[in-house]
Design a protein around this nucleic acid. Structure first.
Lengths: 167, 167
DNA sequence: TTGACATAGTTAGCTGCCTAACTATAATGC
DNA sequence: GCATTATAGTTAGGCAGCTAACTATGTCAA
């Protein structure tokens, strides 16, 4: 996702709206600001994780594994939950396995499949990263009280419903 | 930005909050939902632009040029406004120039510099893309009245102020 | 004036994502 | 029972972003 540093000023929006009658200036500025803030959040998350030698992709895999009672899953399921292709997941798991954070265990019941298991080193990594991440995130969202957080959820839900119209 | 398909359920959040006391569940779910919706918006935008043979990077360059009275800028300035490196901008401009949507004009006053100018073909491309984009975006944000859009701006502003705490 | 530094743009090579094609195994239907 | 089809995982190669190093030009101060 690109990080548009230079959001349009009201003057620029007015100029574009003049040429393109369908322009809805408050819709545009809300949309762009949303993309901008989310991109900055994602980059900040990358920075936070990089202090622990992790990137978002691998970190999410560890979290997805920890969510499971058995701390175990399969590449296909992980790929689907993370919204990446299975090819991408192969690469993520290669990296995690090299760092001994997960292990590949060949399944007996379906010999096409592989079980991916979080190792104790992987759990230990999460036990360092997650408290740091949660502490920072708490601070980041500090300015929003519970009412505002509910408002945010509601607004995001409305936008989310509108996404198909954009495609 | 990754597209986490599988947001944590309240049960999972509770489980993680149990192990990690700093977890602030409403902060976490708001943060993740925000990233998720923004990612989906960005992907939808990609889909919309790809119908016009464009990707976000090149499209933004055209828009940044159109914003200027002279429809002209320089690679460095464009790179800064788009939040990419100058190396990346070189590639974006190579592509746009090959499609004759922009031209490189060598500057007389500073022989290190190059002027990038939107061509009439580039303007014509925008005159097709922008109405389509604006029409779709208007529909996407239809469910938010002006009051909700102001709320959204305010909430995004609060989150934006918190981002430094995340780094 | 000239040596050191700064700036504009490009190139080369890395990364993480993608799609498409492949192997191996399982499931299904004639 | 066996050919077809589906599924799991991997590999190969492409693309858009990145950093680092490079060339050329401009600026500034000793």
């Amino acid at each position: 996702m690109l990080q548009l540093r230079d959001l349009p000023t009201p003057e620029i929006l007015a100029k574009f709206a003049d040429r393109y009658p369908d322009a809805d200036v408050t819709a545009i500025s809300g949309f762009l600001y949303m993309l901008r803030v989310a991109t900055d959040l994602s980059l900040a998350l990358d920075t936070c994780l990089s202090k622990h030698d992790l990137l978002q992709g691998r970190w999410w895999v560890l979290i997805l594994l920890m969510r499971e009672e058995s701390v175990t899953s399969t590449p296909s399921i992980l790929a689907e939950k993370l919204g990446v292709t299975r090819a991408t997941m192969t690469g993520l798991l290669d990296g995690l396995e090299q760092n001994s954070l997960v292990t590949r265990v060949f399944a007996k019941e379906d010999r096409r499949s592989v079980k991916i298991q979080l190792t104790s080193a992987g759990q230990a990594k999460l036990d360092v990263v997650m408290p740091d991440y949660y502490r920072r995130l708490k601070q980041c969202m500090q300015a929003l009280d519970e009412e505002k957080r509910m408002q945010l959820q509601q607004l995001l839900g409305l936008i989310n419903k509108g996404i198909p119209a954009l495609i």
